[in-house]
Design a protein around this nucleic acid. Structure first.
Length: 253
DNA sequence: ATGGCTTTATGCTAAAGA
């Protein structure tokens, strides 16, 4: 079973890339973030024509997450327990695997209300992740976590020290989540430094390989037992009109 | 580098992203 995650930075603009990628890679599930469109404007017909069902939790202009799947999408849940003014979480079961598409708040600037909002949102995710773990099922939490886990996941860690993506509080929250019993799927299969999922549009970040690893798959023990591989597919980042993020692909037995 | 791109919107400048 192949499950991918991709922050597309507008599904409207990126639809051709997404359709091409689905056709070439044929994942069973594709988790999307930053749709930047309300539910009624999601290009459902085009994606269904490509052979994928859609579960969408959209929002006008900002945020928005979705689950695309070749097979039936069951027991859909949108939002985390509590306030869901921003569409950042969707979860469902596909072929017996509980999958979630997550778009964690960015949190910059750190001296604004956005940073405590990020940390509070993280706490809600951690709380919900506990209940998922208690079910002892294969659970795959994929998405844009907006956290650089370690210095080796950043081209210039010193320069990012005080950024919301690399601040100690943000990294501590990600560790708190993983230490509940989740596995960072990418790091289970790849120990190389400087493996990135995001390159800024500015300052030639892509050609200079000035990237960040901020898109992650966290696996429950039952999912980790089935994991066969996890890779970053950097090819879409090189396309014209690319998203600033690129897909991460998880393979389960 | 001084936000250097990209996207969206009761749009034509401003805010957000990371």
């Amino acid at each position: 079973m192949k499950i991918a995650t991709w922050n597309v930075n507008s599904i409207g603009v990126r639809l051709p890339h997404v359709l091409d990628w689905l056709k070439t890679n044929e994942p069973d599930v594709l988790l999307l973030q930053e749709l930047k469109c309300p539910d009624e404007k999601f290009p459902r017909a085009e994606i269904e024509s490509a052979g994928y069902q859609c579960a969408v939790h959209g929002q006008k202009t900002y945020n928005g997450v979705a689950i695309l799947a070749k097979h039936e999408i069951e027991d859909l849940k949108t939002g985390l327990p509590g306030e869901n003014e921003q569409s950042r979480y969707i979860e469902a079961t596909v072929q017996g695997v509980r999958v979630a598409s997550i778009y964690l708040p960015n949190g910059n600037p750190v001296d604004s209300e956005k940073y405590p909002y990020k940390l509070a949102w993280f706490d809600r995710l951690i709380s919900h992740a506990r209940t998922l773990l208690a079910q002892e099922i294969p659970a795959v939490l994929g998405g844009d976590y907006n956290v650089i886990p370690e210095a080796r996941d950043c081209y210039d860690p010193e320069g990012w020290t005080n950024d919301a993506l690399f601040r100690l509080e943000s990294r501590r929250k990600l560790r708190e989540l993983t230490y509940l019993g989740f596995t960072d799927a990418f790091r289970a299969f790849n120990d190389k430094d400087h493996q990135y999922t995001f390159w800024d549009y500015q300052a030639g970040a892509w050609p200079r390989n000035h990237g960040l690893r901020i898109d992650h798959f966290l696996l429950s023990p039952q999912a980790a037992d089935r994991a066969e591989d996890c890779v970053i597919d950097a090819k879409p980042r090189a396309l014209e009109k690319a998203s600033d993020h690129t897909p991460v692909v998880l393979t389960l037995k």
